[in-house]
Design a protein around this nucleic acid. Structure first.
Lengths: 221, 221
DNA sequence: GGTTCGCTGACACTCGGCTGACAGATTGTA
DNA sequence: TACAATCTGTCAGCCGAGTGTCAGCGAACC
């Protein structure tokens, strides 16, 4: 299940992205209005978290255009202050919920969950791939039912791979998801990360497809 | 299914051309505005990738003229880095998606696929030729439904041939696609590649047409 | 029968990916 | 505050898969 986070402040945006990723969603993050409009219009998201103050095209306009073209996914609006006018405008433009900054990440995730539940879809809390169980809600990883400590970044990686098990994922895609940029600063950082993760979950769990990318299989049993 | 790439920078243009060809499209590439306008107005393309900065007639004007004369094919705009005005103008001129330079080729292909899907025609993700199945999305090759390991270059070749199954492809065309240059450094490199591929998929899958080139038939059954 | 074209095995080089070591940053703790 | 532990990116060296090259051979065409 995919979520879209539209927020131009990178600190807040990455926080929200991590929160939703921990809740079991694959998250795209976008930092400007026009990109957000296109992404929401062309991709299929289970939920959207939308900041109102955006460069290029403001959030309300983006939302109105989505609704005008028949997009019905739940949208949760973020706005700078507890500004009532904005809230009303947001709801009228077709928002499903509203949160004023500053907010607690936990509250945002809770509301997002509620929206998802209301919309019918529910994020699978535990993904099972071969001998692995990825508990997205509690941010835990089980290998043959034994809890295995992984670092935050390692968890984001295994979580990302687990949502697309058996698909070959290019290193660029991984960089894009982990660091929010498809600019691959140093591929070696990801190789090192993969190596550390393999040590914990067994080296046969993640297959290397030389020249293509990586593929999560879960390994034997 | 045909695609039109309008881009005056040959490096970018050839990259895009190869990316779309790998995705299963037959690509025409044009490097100036007037020719682009004419081609888009008279030929039938499933999708157009349009750079905005073009010699002769700029991209936005070309797009507006297409729309004014009733052409409805999906158009993906390439625009200079982070220029909102241009992007918004592009949208209003009737673009269906846009991408800022520099971009990852993979992302362009993904978006192009999304546009094609939305437009109804869909680039088949799995091509079936005789006993072969080419999974373009996951970059896998199945021979009689058994996954068969191929190297990146071998995959690009079989993918290229599969998109034009039953057609005889000249060695020069293959070189052009694989190496981006029709200058054939050494034909033997391609012969060796063909041989290695045949070993994996069965020697009767690729027919040699002496003096003309190669033809993919998929072999018996 | 000779010539040309394509096939194939062997070999060498390149480069992608793996790994151990280290260092800076961050977080937790006495 | 100072110290320890953990996390994560970087560097250097290694290994092996992937690919181009070469030489010799066989088959097709004249």
């Amino acid at each position: 299940m995919r979520a879209l986070v539209v927020e131009d402040d990178p600190d807040i945006g990455i926080d929200v992205e991590n929160g939703l990723a921990d809740a079991g969603l694959v998250v795209d993050r976008i930092t400007n209005g026009p990109d957000a409009w296109f992404a929401g219009d062309t991709e299929d998201y289970a939920i959207v978290v939308l900041d109102l103050g955006l460069p290029g095209l403001d959030g309300l306009t983006v939302l109105r255009r989505w609704r005008a073209s028949g997009r019905t996914m739940p949208v949760l609006i973020l706005s700078a202050r507890g500004d009532w006018t904005e809230k009303v405008e947001g709801i009228e433009a077709g928002a499903d919920d509203y949160l004023a900054k500053p907010f607690q990440l936990g509250e945002l995730v809770t509301r997002a969950r509620a929206l998802l539940r209301r919309a019918g879809g529910h994020a699978a809390p535990v993904l099972e791939i071969g001998r692995l169980k990825v508990d997205t809600r509690n941010r835990r990883l089980l290998v043959r039912d034994v809890e295995t400590r992984v670092s935050p970044l390692e968890f984001r990686l295994i979580n990302f791979l687990a949502h697309q098990a058996d698909r070959t994922i290019a290193v660029g895609e991984i960089a894009d998801h982990l660091y929010g940029t498809s600019e691959i600063g140093d591929v070696n950082a990801i190789e090192a990360l993969i190596m550390r993760l393999r040590r914990k979950i067994g080296s046969d769990s993640i297959e290397t497809r030389r020249g293509f990318g990586y593929r999560l299989t879960g390994g034997a049993s």
